[in-house]
Amino acid sequence: MLQLLTIHLKDLINPDFYINNGGLWVLLFIVFAETGLMFGFFLPGDSLLFVAGIYSEKLIGSIISGGTGSEFLDLIVLWLLVSICGIIGNALGYWFGNKSGPFLFHRKDSLLFKKKYLFQAKEFYDKHGGEAIVFARFLPIVRTFAPIIAGIVAMDKKKFVLYNVVGSLAWVFAMLFAGHYLDKLFMTKFGFDLKKHLEVIVIGIVVITTAPVLYKLFFGRKNTAPAEDPYQKS
């Protein structure tokens, strides 16, 4: 008899839930959604990848019977698959932003919309666009909206593509390999099973990755220098 899966709110931010109930395909979709779709900002990208590194053999075994036969190759295959989804997700976010850009730059200010923030974002991406795309990968919420904003302010497409690929490969590699090898290190050296303490790990990752965002939000200096409208007709 078919049993329906009961989902609680806390399950939506629990990476272990996705791994055990959705497997590789859900993992790939979440990475794609969190990096390209605006509604995906709440999904647990960093902690999910960390946990995926721990369960890499299980995840690859779901599409390759018995896995590749090598835990390192399992990680490599998983790294490439997840990275591709992250690259496609960011590309979709950029495309959506680029299509929305002309409308937003020519829209009049309102209570909830101030055009000056678009010009500030434009100036920032002109100066630090490549770095922003790469480092945004390691910051929750920011990584969801960074490619969209890059598209809105018409960041150079070739530059975006390059840093999109670099950022995705670096982010996925760091999280997957950290999860896999730290789990082995702690088990071998201290007899400490990370899989039994995932809640603490998730909280730690969230704190570490959100701290820079909160610091920048409350203590960062605001730059109000003007920038040009990228969609201005000559």
Rank of each mutant, 00 (worst) to 15 (best):
T6R: 15
F113N: 10
L214A: 10
L92C: 11
E131T: 14
D126V: 03
L59M: 07
A33V: 13
S234G: 10
A174P: 02
K216S: 07
A170G: 03
I64Y: 11
Y18Q: 07
H197Y: 15
Q3L: 14
P230F: 07
G220C: 08
F218H: 09
F105K: 04
T210A: 10
V77S: 05
L12K: 13
D156R: 03
M155G: 00
A227F: 00
I201V: 15
S47T: 10
V161W: 06
I19M: 06
E123P: 04
H8W: 15
G167I: 01
A33Y: 02
L194E: 01
D183E: 07
T144N: 04
E123F: 13
L176F: 09
K184S: 07
A91L: 10
N98A: 12
Y125E: 01
H128K: 15
G23S: 03
G45D: 03
L37R: 02
F39H: 05
G66M: 11
D183P: 08
I133R: 00
I205P: 12
D156F: 05
V172Y: 02
P226T: 08
A132W: 06
S83R: 11
I30Q: 05
I30M: 05
F219D: 13
T188G: 10
N223M: 02
G130L: 09
L81W: 15
E199G: 06
N98H: 15
F124H: 08
L4A: 14
F42H: 13
I133H: 07
R107N: 10
D16E: 14
G22I: 06
G40V: 12
L169D: 01
I201G: 04
G61A: 03
V206N: 04
Y94T: 02
G220S: 03
A225T: 09
H106E: 11
H128N: 15
F42E: 14
W79G: 00
F160W: 03
I133P: 00
V161Q: 00
D74G: 07
Q120N: 12
P230M: 01
I63C: 09
G179Y: 01
G129Y: 01
S83P: 06
D193P: 02
N98K: 13
